[in-house]
Design a protein around this nucleic acid. Structure first.
Length: 693
DNA sequence: AGCCGCCTAAACATTT
DNA sequence: TAAATGTTTAGGCGGC
């Protein structure tokens, strides 16, 4: 946190920051201006132009839709006026369909613009929203048309009746139909209100709990208590809006409007008539029956520690009686409570979903680790695995007060989303608040794809720093690629694509990426005729070692270099970068490592024979070759030839592990081309065996 | 308090 | 020549 803010402050002065200063297009900096020299297609590079375009489309569509609606309504009014004889007995039937009533449900362009300006929606989300909006309007139109026809029919009948003075039954029927339609319209309105509400929420949350049509996935990943509280407050504040619907008995039919039936664990809202309080709504789920408070008269799920636990309420109630009173008065069966219940249903649903996922994950983890679990289904015991203590601590610190604060940047149109807690799952292993509790700290636990994917949508849209180290992310980027290899630029693009956070301060994080690539042993630079790319050695990643400090600069001219290049023209880059340190591992050292069962340079754990693994294999092979050469010479061609035979690539020299070579057993036989060398050895106090875990 | 890992900035070298 | 890429170091910060 402290570091975070400090960092931000620092980077505020950077040129990059200034470059996008004053603009609300937060996406325009970062990797987006990068030339894509590699010609890869950026998947979701969202630029200002894209946003503007989407915005324009939205507005156009909305305007067209509104015009259509308006026209219809005008027509209707005209037709109404044109009705030969208006029956005064039916005025109520004319009222519901009015511009005043319908239009507020449709998102105005201004609202949309507002949403867009907050820039919390990805183009995909925008598209979904647009489609939803259009679908809703279409529905609305259809209903209106139908209603209009019905009305005409009714009027016709009334006319006939006036002339004939009969058929009261039919009239009654039609009137009933009309009433039914009124209800339908009300439901439509509700739906639209909900839609609007969701959009409003999106302005704050990016993700929309009450949105039936939108994919629930983002929400499923994204809710944390703080956000939920916020959500409650919104719902509360939206109360007035909902109240305008007035006599909506139908609005209490919660299940019709809110719950996506696609969700695996269905929840149903039950009006609990047996609750100790009148009209109290309680959320029942199939799995978690709330405590029966009939059995515990003074224990109520909504009451605890003298406080009303109704979401968003927290009213202090001295005793249970006053709580009941409060409950009855403040949380009676009304629209607000209903809406809140809807939200709560969503919450429960998401949590269940999340729980199921995490249970599954835990099971897989345990299976993988061969941990005997007596109760695989039970709540996860704090396994003595990765630091549950740490996690719980960080989780506890992930309070809204300690949010990552980035508002110092003028470029950041900070929506509440960006200020929201950075971690959105409650159960993920790496629950991290703003604190940079890095996932792979110490343990170098690789991020699984699921870890990132789980919150993928969130991080894509919320400018929240992901709780992963650069190394972990780079590794993830590389491993996600089909070939398990990426150019630097592709790595950049992955970052910008996957994390909204990395769409600004490009200089900073790009530099960090480069630094990490160079610094971590696990990242292997490979070069072919098309350029260079990076692969990852997963085993090395888990070991988490860095290239040792004090390593001499790789760019040191050397007299042997020309000769080397002569033999291996394609090695130019790598040779010149570090040939001086391609110290052969002597047999003793290797034996030592073998004794320690060090899986040095074994193939990466990802399974697929990829180039990354190939690189590792090559190195392995190279090590074997070194074993035989017993060379004191610098790493010249003999070691390299096999590599080239295997693949027209070569890896950076670092793989030869100067670290080991410089350990106590090290027989650093290379000529010291660098004056820093002895200096390096002075620094290098890392004995091999210690290094070997 | 000291160590360690991570992040950031910066300087510098090399390549494109 | 500028920008991108790559390497290395220093210093700050938080966690342990």
């Amino acid at each position: 946190m402290m570091q975070e803010s400090g960092t931000e402050t620092k980077s505020n002065g950077s040129a990059i920051q200034n470059g996008s200063g004053g603009s609300n297009h937060l996406l325009e900096c970062g990797g987006l201006r990068e030339g894509r020299s590699n010609g890869e297609t950026p998947a979701v590079d969202i630029g200002a132009a894209d946003l503007a375009h989407a915005q324009q489309q939205q507005q156009q569509a909305l305007q067209v839709a509104r015009q259509l609606l308006l026209q219809q309504q005008q027509q209707q009014q005209v037709s109404g006026l044109k009705s030969p004889k208006r029956n005064d007995k039916q005025p109520a039937l004319q009222v519901p369909v009015s511009v005043a009533m319908m239009t507020p449900q449709v998102i105005t362009p201004q609202q949309m613009q507002q949403i867009l300006q907050q820039q919390v929606l990805s183009p995909q989300q925008l598209q979904v929203l647009l489609q939803q909006q259009q679908a809703l309007m279409l529905q609305q139109q259809q209903l209106q048309e139908f209603y209009k026809k019905q009305q005409e029919q009714l009027q016709l009948q009334l006319l006939q009746q006036q002339h004939a003075g009969k058929q009261p039954k039919e009239q009654q029927q039609v009137a009933t139909q009309q009433l039914a339609f009124q209800q339908q319209l009300l439901q439509m309105q509700q739906l639209q209100q909900q839609h609007l509400l969701s959009l409003q929420r999106q302005g704050l949350l990016t993700i929309q709990p009450g949105q039936p049509a939108l994919p629930l996935q983002p929400l499923a990943q994204g809710m944390i208590p703080t956000e939920l509280q916020q959500l409650w407050k919104e719902v509360t504040s939206a109360h007035t809006a909902e109240e305008t619907t007035g006599n909506n008995h139908s609005s209490l039919d919660l299940t019709t409007t809110c719950v996506s039936s696609s969700a695996p664990s269905k929840t149903s809202l039950i009006m609990n008539p047996h609750a100790s309080t009148n009209g109290q709504l309680s959320v029942h789920t199939p799995k978690r029956e709330s405590l029966s408070h009939e059995e515990h008269p003074h224990s109520h799920p909504l009451y605890g520690h003298g406080v009303c636990k109704w979401p968003g309420c927290e009213a202090v109630c001295e005793d249970f009686q006053s709580f009941l009173k409060h409950l009855n008065s403040e949380h009676a069966l009304d629209d607000r409570s209903t809406a809140q219940c809807r939200v709560q249903m969503q919450v429960v649903q998401q949590l269940e979903l999340q729980l199921a996922k995490d249970k599954e994950r835990l099971q897989a983890m345990m299976t993988h680790l061969h941990v005997k679990s007596t109760e695989p289904k039970a709540a996860p015991q704090p396994l003595n695995l990765v630091s549950s203590v740490t996690l719980s601590k960080s989780a506890s610190e992930a309070s809204p007060q300690s949010l990552p604060h980035t508002p110092t940047t003028p470029t950041a149109p900070l929506t509440p989303v960006t200020q929201g807690p950075s971690v959105i799952t409650t159960t993920s292993m790496h629950t991290v608040g703003p604190i940079r509790r890095r996932y792979s700290d110490k343990y170098n636990v690789p991020i699984s794809s699921a870890d990132i994917a789980q919150n993928q949508e969130f991080y894509k849209n919320a400018e929240v720093r992901p709780p992963f180290t650069y190394a972990s992310l780079i590794r993830q980027a590389i491993l996600e690629s089909p070939e398990k290899q990426l150019t630097l630029n592709e790595i950049y693009n992955w970052f910008t694509r996957m994390f909204a956070y990395f769409r600004r301060n490009a200089a900073t994080w790009k530099g960090a990426i480069r630094t990490n690539l160079s610094l971590h042993k696990c990242f292997i630079r490979v070069e072919d005729e098309f350029g260079s790319f990076w692969t990852v050695d997963d085993e090395e990643f888990k070991r988490g070692r860095h290239i040792q400090r004090g390593r001499p600069r790789k760019y040191c001219p050397d007299e042997n270099f020309d000769e080397l290049v002569a033999h291996n023209p394609s090695l130019i880059k790598n040779m010149q970068s570090s040939h001086a340190y391609c110290t052969p591992l002597n047999a003793a050292l290797q034996a030592s490592m073998a004794e320690n069962s060090i899986p040095l340079y074994t193939t990466a754990s990802m399974g697929n024979p990829t180039l990354g693994n190939l690189a590792s294999a090559i190195r392995e092979e190279l090590n074997g070759a070194m074993e035989h050469t017993n060379s004191n010479e610098s790493d010249s061609s003999p070691g390299r030839s096999p590599m080239q035979a295997v693949h027209p690539v070569h890896v950076k020299e670092e793989p030869l592990d100067p670290e080991e070579a410089e350990g106590p057993l090290s027989l650093v036989t290379t000529a010291n081309h660098s004056p820093d060398f002895d200096h390096d050895r002075d620094y290098e106090d890392e004995p091999v065996n210690e290094d070997m875990e």
